[in-house]
Design a protein around this nucleic acid. Structure first.
Length: 603
DNA sequence: CAGTGAGCGAGCTTCCGCTTGACTT
């Protein structure tokens, strides 16, 4: 009975690790955080070194009881929670609640759930990083202070039940500001001219775009450098001349263009791509991914987890996975499709903690076609997406033949310039398996064929096609583009993207209509007030700056109390000013009071 | 006397991030 109790965060992970560690270990899950600030009280003494009161939330009580029970019958405790700031804090709290001194507790971390990685990690236990824990606690306290100090002002001055927070208030602000850009947007008219040309007969006709008029170079659109054809009349003058002009090829440029596959999925990119390709909302994507992670019953194999952990900001793949994928590609595809060396990606998201791998199939040998029978339609569609993206990320680049042709048109002693571009696929590479979807804008990989042309060749004009355009306002955010923007700014975490989207709707700040976010009036009022009274906190850079401070705590360059004090003193002053100056907002109701009408009053 | 309405006080709402079920929209 000389068992060691190992605590991880997720029960699915517990099962896998227990299998790797063997019978001397009992692995149990904490189910995330098990201790938190009280819900109905600030729980922070701002005058006494930001002392924190913790309690075990009701939902965690049974998990704590389970851990205590398992701890009683084991000799040793190993904390194997996630390798990030929150995981370090969970480790600290588990140790504390089990009566183990956090300074002496054994801590083990890994970023891949593979047998080798686990055994290696357990061979080199360390201690809990108390500075990292301090950083987490500072983060928690700061979020509590922001949320629980500002929200009540909104209840009193705007509407009961409203909320403000480091993350949600910035999300709402982005949506409000985008709406204002759209409102203020004035479309600008501009014209393009395409000329249909052919080397000889009509069958090889192609389009060339007017790029140069006698007065100078044209702009591709009004926001770019160059001359803009702003009116139909002006465009018509050039079109009329182009109809009479003679055309000659001046230059043919051929080059090869390569395209690399997108990196494996993170939570954010999975949510974006599932929205683009499958039309799933963030919440739906996450719950389906959770099912795939927890495992499905496969005939002959029992319950198997099909994908790695779905809440991650890392694009890394485990070495063992890279080997398996490379082997799979070598056997399933012709030789040109595999890579000599694995392709490695770098995380571009700010604030990434990379405690896990990228989201990938636990084995690419479980082809979607093989596991399809055990999955429902949506599960299979999401699994297929993950499988394809992962395999494609380790396949050869696609190669395109790109041709650019410059054409000169002469008329009345004037010279015009046109350009035609063509692109053909030389080698499909990773595109054979998977291509990333697009939000807006043209398809860069679309094929456009040009006939064989050479310099000095004369061309026949078949048609001149002027076309009217208007500049477009920026698009309203979708769930996917909002998540993308938040991630790029380092705001929010993989475990919270879906709930941020819910919160800002539940509070009545924004609504989704045709999959686009529209702000309600209350969002505009609250955003303006927050920008007026708490400009630092609703700044999109606030989180990034906070992260720098937290890093300094973790590095031992600053203390938790010092960071919180430097935040809180000016914040406290802003709160007092707001308490005084934040004028009450009286909502105008759209609908009339039913009783007033009944009783013959005007409200 | 019964019903109505004004006035008052008490109690509630809220953050972010880590995990799953338990649900009843």
């Amino acid at each position: 009975m000389a068992k060691t109790l190992v605590v991880v965060e997720s029960p699915a992970k517990a099962k896998t690790i227990e299998k790797y560690l063997g019978p001397d270990f009992a692995v149990r899950a904490s189910f995330g955080h098990i201790r938190d600030l009280p819900k109905s009280d600030l729980g922070v003494d701002v005058d006494e070194g930001f002392t924190v009161t913790y309690e075990v939330p009701d939902d965690s009580k049974k998990h704590v009881a389970e851990l205590k029970k398992a701890h009683k019958v084991s000799e040793e405790l190993v904390l194997a929670t996630d390798y990030d700031r929150e995981g370090e804090a969970i480790a600290f709290h588990v140790a504390t609640l089990l009566g183990v001194d956090p300074e002496r507790a054994k801590r083990v971390t890994f970023t891949e759930i593979t047998r080798d990685a686990i055994l290696e990690a357990f061979a080199h236990p360390r201690e809990i990083d108390l500075r990292l824990f301090d950083a987490q606690e500072a983060r928690r306290v700061l979020d509590r202070l922001v949320g629980y100090k500002i929200s009540p002002i909104l209840w009193r001055r705007v509407r009961p039940g409203l909320s403000a927070g480091r993350v949600q208030s910035v999300a709402v602000r982005l949506i409000v500001e985008r709406e204002r850009e759209i409102r203020a947007f004035v479309p600008v008219e501009y014209w393009s001219v395409d000329v249909r040309l052919a080397p000889d007969g009509d069958e090889h006709a192609f389009l060339a775009r007017l790029t140069q008029i006698p007065e100078g170079r044209l702009a591709a659109s009004p926001d770019k450098k160059g001359i803009v054809l702003a009116t139909e009349a002006e465009t018509g003058t050039h079109a009329e001349r182009l109809r009479r002009a003679s055309y000659r090829v001046t230059k043919v440029e051929r080059k090869e263009r390569k395209r690399s596959p997108a990196p494996p999925f993170t939570t954010s990119t999975l949510q974006q791509e599932a929205a683009r390709k499958l039309g799933f909302g963030a919440r739906k994507t996450m719950s389906i991914a959770q099912r795939l992670y927890e495992g499905v019953d496969l005939p002959g194999e029992g319950t198997v987890g099909l994908i790695t952990y779905m809440r991650t900001d890392s694009v890394n793949l485990a070495e063992s996975a890279l080997r398996e994928i490379a082997g799979f590609i070598r056997t399933e595809y012709p030789s040109g499709y595999s890579l000599a060396e694995p392709r490695r990606y770098r995380t571009r998201a700010r604030n990434a903690q990379e405690a896990h791998e990228a989201i990938r199939p636990t084995s690419v040998l479980r082809h979607p076609g093989r596991v399809g029978g055990a999955l429902d339609r949506d599960q299979l569609r999401l699994y297929t997406l993950i499988w394809q993206r992962t395999v494609a990320s380790q396949m050869a680049e696609a190669r395109f033949n790109q041709v650019g042709v410059d054409i000169e048109a002469s008329v009345d002693g004037l010279t015009y310039g046109l350009r035609a571009t063509g692109q053909t696929l030389l080698f499909d590479g990773f595109i054979r398996v998977y291509r990333e979807g697009r939000d807006e804008g043209p398809d860069e990989d679309a094929e456009a064929r040009l006939p064989e042309l050479e310099a000095e060749q004369l061309l026949r004009m078949l048609d001149v096609l002027p076309e009217q355009h208007f500049t477009q306002p920026p698009p309203r955010y979708t769930e996917a583009s909002l998540v993308k923007t938040l991630e790029e700014r380092g705001i929010g975490r993989p475990s919270t993207y879906a709930s941020i989207i819910s919160t800002i709707q539940d509070r009545g700040y924004v609504r989704l209509q045709d999959k686009r976010f529209f702000p309600e009036d209350v969002a505009e009022v609250v955003t303006d007030k927050l920008v007026e009274h708490f400009p630092d906190i609703v700044n999109v850079n606030f989180t990034a700056e906070m992260e720098e401070d937290l890093d300094e705590i973790a590095e031992g360059e600053m203390g938790r109390v010092q960071v919180l004090r430097e935040f809180y003193d000016p914040f406290h002053e802003a709160l007092e000013r707001a308490e005084e100056k934040f004028e009450r907002y009286v909502e105008e109701l759209d609908e009339e009071c039913p009783r007033c009408i009944e009783e013959g009053r005007t409200p």
